[in-house]
Amino acid sequence: MKNNKKRLSTAVFYGVVIVMALVVLFPFLWMLASSFKTQLDVVAWPPKLFFTPTLQNYRKVFGEQDFLQYFLNSTVVATLAVGLSLALGLPAAYSISRFAQRRLGMFILLARLMPGISFLMPWYIVFSRLNLMDSYTALVLSHMLIALPIVVWIMSSYFDTIPRDMEESAMVDGATRQYAFFKIILPLSGPGIITATTLSFIFSWNNFMFSQVLSMEKTKTLPIAVYNFLSYAETDWGGVMAAAVAIMAPALILTMFFQRYVVKGLTMGAVKG
């Protein structure tokens, strides 16, 4: 009897997991399937579950569009934005954690909570006056509004979990606080740093709004590339889906590769003491 109940509960558990996974994965699977369909198959009703796959949409993305340049632009902008955010955010998060500067932490986090569109007009005026429109500088600084608060928010909580005794012991032996931070605290913060890097990179990689306003032909990023398949007369849904898959692929691979570190970093950052 107990075995039957155990089997039933196990079956119910896996059934619920499968249903939830299908609900979550359905949009992605639909997008992936549509990227291999012709325009007629994409808009067909009822939807075609069985169709002859084609690579024509991906040929448009990588052949007819300057997709590799968009990819390079997104890589440069996201990498620089995340790198500078780590350089500024890690010391800031350490200071917030060790000196209880919670008001400063809330002020930095406020930039992430505010709608991004509220920054567009000030950014546009400043960068246009400085002749920095369509430059990596403008995009990197604007993307840091996304990446820097994430780094500070995650790492300040993560530093709280590291006992103060470690750095205090080093300082008793003559080490400076800076030395203790770089040589003791940071090496122990690997999962948190990987978590902050991964999440801030993904948010920067997928950002559309800042790139739409501040970039032009020279610095267009990948999310803007989807716009090339939209027009007043017709929307090339197959091309849109193929471009979306190509845009999601790097972020998806990065997330899968660092998944266990991200989970560990978020879990440790959520537990104090």
Rank of each mutant, 00 (worst) to 15 (best):
K48M: 05
P46Q: 04
K60H: 13
F71M: 05
N73I: 05
F71V: 07
G83T: 08
P53V: 14
Q56T: 13
A87Q: 02
W30T: 14
A33K: 10
A78Y: 04
P53M: 00
L55C: 08
L49C: 09
F67E: 04
F67L: 06
T79S: 08
L84N: 02
K37W: 03
N57R: 00
N57H: 09
V23R: 03
P53G: 01
V76A: 04
A44P: 15
M31Y: 06
V42F: 03
Y70M: 01
L86R: 10
L25E: 07
A21L: 14
S85L: 09
L84E: 06
V43T: 15
V43C: 11
A33C: 13
W45Y: 02
E64Q: 10
F51M: 12
Y58W: 06
A92V: 07
F36E: 10
A81Q: 00
Q56D: 11
G89D: 00
L25V: 08
S35R: 02
P91I: 13
Y70D: 03
L29N: 07
V82Q: 00
L80M: 11
F71I: 13
F50R: 10
W30S: 12
S74H: 02
W45C: 13
A78L: 01
G89A: 08
L32C: 00
L29W: 08
A87W: 06
S35K: 03
P27Q: 05
A81L: 00
S85G: 12
L29I: 14
K48Q: 06
P46R: 01
V24W: 03
S85Y: 15
L25K: 04
A78E: 05
L88T: 04
M31Q: 07
A93F: 01
V23H: 05
Q39P: 14
F36D: 11
E64L: 15
K60E: 14
Q65K: 09
S74G: 03
Q56I: 13
F26D: 00
L32H: 14
E64R: 12
L90M: 00
P46G: 03
A44E: 09
Q39H: 15
S85H: 09
F67M: 09
G83S: 02
F67K: 06
W45F: 11
L40M: 11
Y58A: 07
Y70P: 11
Y58M: 06
